[in-house]
């Protein structure tokens, strides 16, 4: 039976761990070994909205495995602009490829494609709903950089209200028994309360603060996010909070030795460029891990073992 990757909510802890193990195997394998894994296989990358990192990362992953890629990077260049329905596009493209990777602004498009198509479907972001491959690569990065996930103290900084990356990662970390979260956000961008109602009273601690310095001192991972201009109906509201938190190299002097700064990218100005040269900067390796994790995902969903 075909296997899709649509939502982190569908995955058990064992399944998540299996992605991490597969990614580690991908990373251990040589480039020469990897490129022999998927010759002749075709991935369709259907990007109905612009996305540089996710699309290039998926394409790079498929090429690294010896497969090839077809697809489009914006809906203007497709039959969708002629009025073709999403489901018709899926049914057409499934005849041309072996696996579908879909990014779409509409929420639930990954699930719909998975129901409609006989091919495995990977959700590469559906509106503000799910982006499971980002969450998996974040988990892989944390495990790789800090040796474990369980029991770590993780701080999230910036837009905790709208960031689907943050929401999805918090849920996944809870599965791994991460119980201590520090949340640094301006008042208007705090984490929605329902995330903190876990149904297991006393197990998880959510420490909310507006002070970034405190989070730097106490955390093992500082997960920074961009405050997204497009989320604000009122530009004045955006201007008020956009520079709330700017991390600089100087601020990191009080961080623990092993601490890592992560960011899903793109950054705007929430991480100063002088942080890039410090040992704490984990965000570019994180992007590199994205290609590793996506190779693991493609292999698993095409049923090819490594």
């Amino acid at each position: 039976m075909k296997k899709d990757l649509i939502s982190m909510e569908d995955l058990t802890l064992d399944e998540v761990k299996d992605y991490l193990v597969t990614a580690a195997r991908v990373e251990e394998a040589s480039l020469e070994e990897r490129v022999k894994l998927l010759p002749g296989r075709i991935m369709a990358a259907l990007f109905f909205e612009p996305s540089t990192r996710t699309r290039l990362s998926f394409e790079s992953a498929m090429h690294r495995l010896g497969g090839s890629v077809i697809g489009f990077a914006a809906k203007d260049a497709t039959s969708v602009s002629k009025g073709e329905s999403f489901t018709d596009t899926i049914h057409t493209v499934e005849s041309y490829s072996d696996i579908l990777v879909i990014r779409h602004p509409g929420e639930g498009t990954g699930r719909l494609a998975a129901k409609e198509s006989f091919l495995p479907v990977i959700n590469a972001g559906d509106g503000s709903n799910q982006h499971p491959t980002q969450t998996l690569l974040d988990l892989y990065t944390i495990q790789k950089d800090l040796g474990k996930i369980e029991g770590l103290k993780i701080a999230f900084v910036g837009d905790l209200k709208y960031s689907r990356t943050v929401h999805s990662l918090i849920r996944a970390l809870m599965m791994f028994n991460v119980t201590d979260f520090t949340l640094v956000a301006p008042e208007s961008l705090r984490l929605p309360a329902h995330f903190m109602r876990t149904g297991q009273p006393g197990k998880f601690t959510f420490h909310e603060t507006e002070h970034l310095e405190e989070a730097i001192r106490t955390s093992d991972v500082l997960y920074m996010t961009r405050i997204q201009r497009e989320r604000f109906p009122d530009i004045l509201e955006y201007e008020k909070v956009k520079d709330s938190y700017v991390l600089t190299a100087e601020m990191l002097e009080e961080a623990q030795e092993h601490m890592r700064v992560l960011h899903p990218l793109p950054r705007v100005n929430e991480i100063a460029y002088d942080v890039d040269k410090t040992k704490f900067a984990g965000y570019f390796p994180q992007a590199r891990n994205g290609v590793i994790m996506r190779q693991a995902i493609i292999l698993k969903h095409l049923g090819v073992s490594i």
């Binding site: 999403f86 489901t87 509409g106 639930g108 503000s128």
Partner: peptide
């Protein structure tokens, strides 16, 4: 109720 849900865009779903 979510206007951005695909079921509100593709009405045949």
């Amino acid at each position: 109720k979510n206007p951005n849900c695909i079921t509100n865009v593709e009405k045949h779903v």
